[in-house]
Design a protein around this nucleic acid. Sequence first.
RNA 1: GCCCCUGUAGCUCAGUUGGAUAGAGCACCAGCCUCCGGAGCUGGUUGCGAGCGUUCGAGUCGCUCCAGGGGCGCCA
Length: 552
Amino acid sequence: MIKQRIIELLAQAADKAQKSGKLPSVAVPEITIEHPQNPEHGDYASSLPLKLARATGASPLAIAEDLVGLMAPAPEVETATVAPPGFINFTLKDAWLTRQVDAILPAGESYGNIDLGQASRVQLEFVSVNPTGPLHVGHGRGAILGNTLANVLSAAGYKVEKEYYVNDAGSQIDAFNRSLYARYQQGLKVDAEMPADGYLGDYIVDLAKEIIADEGDKFLSLPEKEAVAEIGKLGLAKMLAQIKGDLELLGVGFDVWFRERDLFEQGQYEKVMSLLREGGYIAEREGATWFVSTALGEDKDNVVVRSDGSPTYFATDIAYHYNKFIQRKFDRVINIWGADHQGHISRMKAVVQALGISPERLVVIISQMVTLSRGGEVVKLSKRSGDIITLRELIDEVGADACRFFFAARSADSQMDFDLELAKKQSADNPVYYVQYAHARIASILRLAQDKKIDYSTGDVSLLTTGPELTLIRKMLLLPEVIEMVAQALEPHHLAYYAQDLATVFHSFYKQCRVVSDDEALSKARLKLVAAARLTLARTLHLMGMTAPDKM
RNA sequence: GCCCCUGUAGCUCAGUUGGAUAGAGCACCAGCCUCCGGAGCUGGUUGCGAGCGUUCGAGUCGCUCCAGGGGCGCCA
């Protein structure tokens, strides 16, 4: 990556300056470079002299002059100049830029890959919605966030495993089972009341009908407890299949579907509890069992086993993270949770610490609420009210690509308002079409070249000398940097902005530069350029889980 | 009361881990097709919630307010 090259050049110059005594031997701060917003300042700029000035007391301009003077000449760099109050600005060589087209083309769909992760193992757990109801719009946001992040982390050299944690034990699934049983009875004209904590959504009625169609009335003759368990099992399978299907519509898939029940059936729950007990993190009081998180600086302790002997969600999550870190030995675990789980983070980190694992290895990304409105009127998201807008409905209305782009384009930290009417009305103006249109346009140009039987493999990229051409190349070269930024900050939304930027510079290039013309040599060079642009754009879209259409 | 997130253009949002003159889309206005896809291109208008502080330099960091959302359960 060219960015790394420039950082190296600076580091070497600083080292030389210190060895020659021009610069006092202080610790060199981390060298960062950025893209100046003013293009007159070049392609890259560093404020290293300003930082060294603080550490050494010397004049930043003098330091900058020394560093530039000591810098080795590089084939990539046209100029390195000093600018007040102490910046060093770098401008890339046009000839080097154009050569990059020949580097991008053979890389193909691997263009942009970097080795930030060095094959370290990252687990990304996301969605993990209780299989007690259909996915809604907020879940879609988490799904796309997680899936896009997984794609980018893979591109950044991490070994990524995507996992869905299936809560198939506990009180919520219990309420689901009892609700389904009640609807089953009602469907067979048996007088039954919905449980007080039951799920009132119509989908439960539909599930019950399906079960009646499949299995008839045979569960009526079973004892209630047994019937609830049997029907629950069927309902869970149907619910999971539905969830899986919805996610597939968005192109979101998982490597592992991890069952909460396994934590009990395979002894991990018992194991981790005894570990914590040995560590002195467990206390009995008020008839319940507590995790003493106050010993680790938390505000309060948390119940792990209720006074009726049943484990809490927190307890199983402890076992689950024991499994992730100690049994499966992931280097890093990233969980994507909804905003309502925010309070769960610090105690989970405390547990990880109690298990002897550095808490930094557990990263929790909170995806903020999605509020839905329809025609300016707020729609409640409650899964229990039955009045929900499902993810499936959203996909049907605006399409999978638009869903992906729309959700991926927003920082997880910001809550978003999703107006369904607006989404429908604006679907043709959605930025997703702008980006995909650029791709289709390029594909169309390449088709034309093919029709005219132009073999551009021998094109001479050094003929690409105009502003729009170089601007396009510069933008294409940013993809590895974007991947690095997304992977480091765990913020996929940068990808969406990059996609738009890239499309913009392409459209602008297209307007100013005729690709297929009478000038055969120039045509071939430009065909190479647009072929590389197509690759870059397609890669970006694919990282976002979107299609890169050749025709629209 | 305590904790987390957010507050940037009329609207929806970015802002490269503290950099130089704060950007994009939508909307609005004015232009642009003899030629590879006009779902496009080129211009134009407006802004960092408030106040202190840290330093060469703050939308970004710290503190205090104000506003919106979420959490603080032997729910998940």
